[in-house]
Design a protein around this nucleic acid. Sequence first.
DNA 1: CTTATGACCTGATAGC
DNA 2: TGCTATCAGGTCATAA
Length: 289
Amino acid sequence: MRRSLASWLVGARIARVRVNRRDVVTLPSDPAGGYGRNPGKRVGTPARVRGADLLSGATVTELRRRGKQLCIVGRSGPGAWRGVLVHLGMTGGLSRVARGHQSPAHAHVVWTLESGERLVFADARRFGGLWTLEDEGALMWRHWSRLGPDALGVRAPELVRRLARTSRPIKAALLDQGVLAGVGNIYADEALFLARVHPGVRADELDGDTVRRLAGCVRRVLREGIEAGGSTLRDFRDSMGQPGRYAKRHRVYGRAGEACRRCGTTIEGTSVGQRTTAFCPVCQDAGGA
DNA sequence: CTTATGACCTGATAGC
DNA sequence: TGCTATCAGGTCATAA
């Protein structure tokens, strides 16, 4: 998504912003989790979202990603840093809409560029959202300091150290964004298959060689996924509307009941940490490592 | 502190 | 056709 946005959004000047749903936007003054995402804590009237907080009047200079979070960085006037953090959740998307064309369904926030085209944040299920940032420090300290290293470039020693500190199943640890940032349910299953690690084994019981192998497999599946434009199960489209092509290359995810591509055994479907999990019981033997 | 669990949402699909 | 149940790519608050 970052790459597909960069090609047309960087350098663009934002003329105005329209917020159709206040609760997908979290201001620094809103409750930590976000105003709309915890009904029990919706108290009082939320502060109004100002256009400038969502880059109105700014020129986009950069798109920075860490894990699953994307920061649209801009400048308004000399030296004035602006930034909006985006998380797509499960069904969120950012899309480019030409002048005169219709926005997608669930268009919660719409930026109109000086060129007349629009950037639209849409999210049917609303697990995603936007976070405004008062300065670069807020991005680094309030948001990104809570994330583990970005999975695309994670080094083996770092992963070894981090996995040694948790007794959870390895799959649950890989999905914890504070341990490692950027691996979701699909790529966790794919990486574990490639590394021949059973998703249910305790993270702190994996030996060093196995974790080193796993680090390489995490980087590999993400690199492959990005090169293929992502995994489209149903909803995902990049900002130009293109679906990803990686799902047809999944080795285990979504293939429970089908034959393992490596050994022919039936891929098993189960649940680890409340998440749908697929693995090959022969290639990913819980005893082996 | 760490870990487990339910809640948050909507839409697609399967089964009756 | 229309109803209900089930499931989904992620995270957060809360309880244990």
